[in-house]
Design a binder for these strands. Structure first.
Lengths: 240, 240
DNA sequence: GTCCCGCAATGGTGTTACCTTTCGACCCCA
DNA sequence: TGGGGTCGAAAGGTAACACCATTGCGGGAC
């Protein structure tokens, strides 16, 4: 996640307008002008233009002569852009964004675990087992903050070990989801034993190269997530 | 996929540098200067700067005073940015990109089909069945070009009907993969009957709201894809 | 009254020139 | 050898300009 954006003048402008668009304060079809941006933020035309170009490259706006800078419909946003994800998570679209991301996790992480079982390096294999054990220790002692950090490390490691750079690119986003989930109070005070088992099962399968099993174990693990997300409106397809 | 980029001067510069970076001709750590870009492409400083900003926002470069524009390591690229995907597909990284995208498809499409079974509108349900039937007709008559178009429409429809905008955003990319796969000669001259059945199974499950079944049917369908991709180095986890 | 044509206002596009700020490299001296 | 200070390269930012694609309005013809 780009922590940047506050050193340069662009940062503030980009942040403000990006938020307003993703938040819906600026509706699709609304138009801005460079002059308006200059006035509003007290920046030069150059800065306004460069900011606009970035917004354009994220699909949030288009720029046309004579007409100005037009806010685009959500359908044309680069919804995988970390900044767009971030803005949506920070604003009122949070629940919808969290739901989308959780579905994405449920889709991707099992495959990633399977691939990791195949491609992980020796160090990664030992590390994943260590993390599984660490999670059990921290979980049983109820050290939630440390547990969260280790959990993030666990999922990040698998995504990175998958050998698929698109999966790996989701690591930051998964971290945000995990933190967000905890902050929203969707996690039990003490991790349930099933979750601890599930992590260890994944770790064991990955480290021993059993990719079918790794995939399945990760699916089990995420089953818990599905349930925990239910209050947010995520459907639980447990019956047909 | 953005057709844009050729009207404005930025387009050409962005395209050229973006390609060179994703292609590896410009290695991580290499530096450019604005002046260099101006000279090379015969553009003004403004255009060079705006282009650089876009590249920066895609994670391909960073810009620091006194140092210049530094090419970033692939790990910090926005690998979900359609342009990055496009450049990688067009260049020598094509196979790796196709492999990543195919894994992503295998991860996402079953979930998307399941979600579509739940969320699709009445029109979408009838349309998916129509498309399934159309695929059979075209497939049996060996009309490959039309088959491809219908296939793309089929997968696009499911991704859009999933109610998850991140899944929907992958529609363009999936379309590119399907086209690329055909161009690479990975498709049989005439679609195999199993594939036709699989599409119809998915369509039936989606239209009747059986999301478990829709998910499973899509997994079956993608099993064929897995096999077809094998020559590209995608592993077939059929045994453990 | 309606339709079409043309003109003028608007606002992005691209260029140039200029000043400011930062920080890496190099040199000098201890 | 190494610490610190100076210099200058290159981005950051501002300003003012010519240019031109739109578009929307107004006027004239029918």
């Amino acid at each position: 996640m780009s922590r940047a954006g506050f050193e340069s003048r662009h940062g503030a402008v980009l942040e403000a307008i990006g938020r307003e668009i993703t938040e819906g304060e600026l509706a699709p079809g609304d138009t801005l002008t460079l002059e308006g941006m200059q006035g509003r933020f007290g920046v030069s035309r150059t800065v306004a233009r460069e900011t606009m170009r970035i917004l354009e490259s994220m699909g949030l706006v288009t720029s046309r002569r004579r007409v100005g800078i037009t806010v685009q419909d959500a359908a044309s946003w680069n919804v995988f852009d970390p900044r767009v994800i971030w803005w949506r998570l920070a604003g009122s679209g949070r629940d919808a964004q969290l739901r989308s991301l959780t579905e994405l996790r449920i889709a991707v992480e099992p495959l990633a675990a399977g691939a990791a079982a195949y491609y992980a390096s020796a160090e990664q294999r030992t590390r994943i087992v260590e993390l599984g054990a660490r999670l059990r220790g921290l979980g049983e002692r109820g050290l939630l903050a440390d547990f969260l950090d280790a959990d993030i490390a666990f999922h990040t490691l698998l995504l990175e070990a998958s050998g698929n750079e698109m999966f790996a690119a989701l690591a930051d986003v998964v971290a945000v989801v995990l933190r967000g989930r905890t902050r929203l109070g969707l996690m039990p005070q003490q991790p349930v034993p099933e979750a601890l088992d599930a992590h260890e099962n994944v770790a064991a399968a990955v480290s021993s190269g059993q990719y079918r099993k790794a995939e399945e174990a990760m699916r089990d693990l995420l089953g818990e997530v599905r349930d925990a997300m239910a209050p947010l409106g995520v459907d639980d397809p447990s019956l047909d």
